[in-house]
Amino acid sequence: PTPPYLKWAESLHSLLDDQDGTNLFRSFLCQEGCEDLVDFWFACSGFRQTSQDKRAKLAKVIYRKYIVDGSGIVSRTIKAATKSFIRDCVGKPHLDPAMFEQAQTEIQAMMEENTYPLFLKSDLYLEYT
């Protein structure tokens, strides 16, 4: 069978589908000071599965932690229009479980173009393989 670390090189999704791959990628992002990217990506996935009674509070927490402060990597990466869309959603009584989907897509695109290829060339990944 193909070793997991070779699968990680197939796509970002293959990497993030694997626990060891996710942990190693997160360690790499920590070294670069941008682990918020992957934390936010998983927070968006988790948000979709969160029960409705917790959704309003969680949306505010995600918004405050990653988006409202413009100096963070997530906030700097996602588009202004996406940020205003989320800001408008957060205050509504009934939250759309997909309200972070566009932001998640933008963060994913950034990781695919930037941090994921760098990870595959990193000492951390090469040492692991």
């Binding site: 997991p4 993030l16 589908d17 694997d18 626990q19 060891d20 791959g21 996710t22 934390d39 998983f42 927070a43 996935s45 988790g46 948000f47 599965q49 969160t50 917790k54 509070k57 969680l58 927490v61 995600i62 932690k65």
Partner: peptide
């Protein structure tokens, strides 16, 4: 860890892949 951090952490963890 306060409850907001806890809520966020649980949300992130719930979406992460489980051990093979």
């Amino acid at each position: 860890m306060d409850s907001e951090d806890d809520l966020l952490q649980k949300c992130i963890t719930s979406a992460m892949p489980k051990q093979r």
